[in-house]
């Protein structure tokens, strides 16, 4: 399901969503829905928030949110909120600030944020903040650019960015840019194309994107493309995959690269899709 979201969002950013038969995709997605309302990664598997958001995002791309029983999906999601405001990923109870983002983003797309306790959810995310300004999986967890995207994205959607120390977090995030122009996700790590999305979207949401060298980052991403078969890899010369292709293209979209649709940094969907969700009734 995540693969479907990565591939299809990339196609939409490239203006080529019609390359696939939308009915076939939608039928498959609906076969992945569990009786609880949540979606599984594939037919016959167990549901999880990870796949529920991807399923809803793909339906939004195709302007087919109306095939969903939105209340049923929203009940599945709000049922996973815990007493302290955190979210479990599924019925087995693993807690992670990523799951808070999945729940908040998904309920926002479904216009059902009122089904959860937003205040408690925001406070839990704020409790995952570290001395370096970043965020971890749970309170006291190490800062990681992927977790930071989730926490900042969730705070942005709920209008709670005042919980972020923007200069401090911006400082940590801009220190992710290495000599080659690429971004890493944690100190001392190699750069990886996927952080072009996670670091960059966070910097945009906190209005500090001018703290990195954008031209060098564009060059780094372009260097990761396999010009023979089109895909993008984590680093130059590595094997390509749909995950890094999406994050490369989404990063280039945030960098206003010509020929790509604009992407919304919080909902991780093309801006025209987000506008359709929120401004067209």
């Amino acid at each position: 399901m995540n693969g479907a979201y990565w591939g299809l969002t990339t196609l939409d950013l490239l203006g080529k969503l019609d390359a696939l038969d939308s009915n076939e995709v939608i039928q498959w997605i609906m076969k992945c829905q569990h009786e609880s309302g949540g979606f599984a990664g594939n037919i016959g598997h167990d549901p999880h928030l990870l796949y529920t958001l991807s399923a809803v995002q793909v339906l939004a791309l195709f302007d087919k949110l109306n095939v969903l029983d939105a209340d049923k999906v929203a009940n599945y999601i709000s049922g996973l909120q815990n007493e302290d405001g955190s979210f479990s990923g599924d019925e087995w109870g693993e807690v992670d600030s990523r799951f808070s983002y999945l729940a908040i983003c998904c309920l926002s797309i479904l216009h059902r944020l009122d089904k959860m306790n937003v205040e408690k959810a925001v406070n839990y995310i704020a409790s995952c903040k570290n001395v370096d300004g970043g965020f971890g999986c749970t309170p006291g967890g190490e800062s990681h650019a992927g977790q930071i995207f989730c926490c900042v994205g969730a705070l942005a959607i709920t209008g709670s960015l005042h919980h972020v120390d923007k200069d401090l977090l911006g400082w940590w995030l801009c220190e992710r840019q290495v000599k080659s122009g690429g971004l890493n996700g944690r100190p001392e790590k190699l750069p990886d194309v996927c952080y072009s999305w996670w670091v960059l979207s966070s910097l945009i949401m906190i209005d500090r994107v001018h703290w990195i060298n954008k031209d060098k980052l564009v060059k780094f991403i372009l260097n990761c493309q396999d010009t023979e078969n089109g895909g993008i890899s984590d680093r130059p010369e590595d094997a390509v995959d749909v995950f890094h292709t999406y994050f490369g293209v989404a990063g280039l979209s945030l960098l206003e690269y010509p020929g790509l649709k604009a992407i919304d940094p919080a909902h991780a969907l093309p801006v025209d899709v987000v506008n359709r969700i929120f401004f067209q009734k």
């Binding site: 971890g136 999986c137 749970t138 006291g140 967890g141 190490e142 990681h144 944690r186 001392e188 790590k189």
Partner: peptide, 15 residues
């Protein structure tokens, strides 16, 4: 090396 998942587990154990 630099295994985020492994160390995250260790941080979680602290409580």
């Amino acid at each position: 090396k630099m295994n985020y998942r492994a160390w995250n587990h260790r941080c979680w154990l602290v409580s």
